[in-house]
């Protein structure tokens, strides 16, 4: 039998048949520049700065993003808002996107949800200097891709997706809906509480 198999090359023929049939299966190629991928909400694309709905800048120039950045590509120059002592803002904000590793730590670090990542992944330019983003460019990106930024913050559990200043910032952060653990298992009283209630609970005990 082995000899017949060698003579008629049945194993090779089996492989060839498989390859032939594979020809009629649909291709899995995406014609990229013409057809684009559906980018998920949590996608970490180019960084952007966000504004409040009234147009004022969210960034308070705290430099936490600069501290959190693992590749040291952020530079914040903080200053007081003229005429408003104790209110600070970022006078200059530089982001070297050529060094950015798109980890998203800066958005996690931001206490005021001023930073969000967009779904922009086509960052090629002809002049390398255009990749040194300044504050103006970052706010432009944020305005152009506001929906992306909101979706990003929601997907990463940093905001409820509205960026509504009246509801308070970061309310959605690290708060998870109560989980029903089933019969007989007491639900911990701390689940689903706001921060103030939690602190009160801790103070009580």
């Amino acid at each position: 039998m082995g000899l017949m198999r060698d003579i008629f090359m049945t194993e090779l023929m089996g492989g060839m048949k498989l390859v032939f049939l594979q020809m009629f299966k649909p291709s899995c190629t995406l014609q990229y520049p013409h057809v684009k991928h559906n980018v998920p909400d949590g996608y970490r694309g180019l960084m952007s700065l966000l504004r409040y709905e009234d147009g004022s800048e969210r960034c308070v120039g705290c430099s936490l993003c600069e501290a959190a950045c693992p590749s040291n590509c952020i530079k914040v120059v903080s200053d007081e808002v003229p005429g408003q002592p104790l209110v600070r803002y970022a006078k200059e904000y530089y982001l070297d996107i050529t060094r950015c590793v798109f980890c998203g730590f800066c958005t996690e670090a931001c206490p005021v949800d001023a930073l969000a990542m967009t779904k922009v992944y086509e960052a090629s330019v002809y002049d390398r200097r255009e990749l040194m983003f300044d504050k103006h460019k970052l706010y432009e990106l944020g305005e152009a891709h506001l929906a992306d930024g909101k979706a990003y913050l929601l997907a990463h559990n940093m905001d409820d997706g509205t960026l509504n200043p009246t509801e308070g910032l970061g309310d959605n952060r690290y708060e998870f809906p109560p989980v029903d653990l089933g019969e007989g298992v007491p639900v911990p009283t701390t689940v689903g509480l706001t921060r103030e209630a939690l602190e009160a609970e801790v103070a009580k005990s």
Partner: peptide, 12 residues
């Protein structure tokens, strides 16, 4: 033909 055999499209 190689592209079709490998589930690709080839030159387009």
């Amino acid at each position: 033909v190689l592209s079709f055999m490998q589930d690709r499209l080839g030159p387009m």
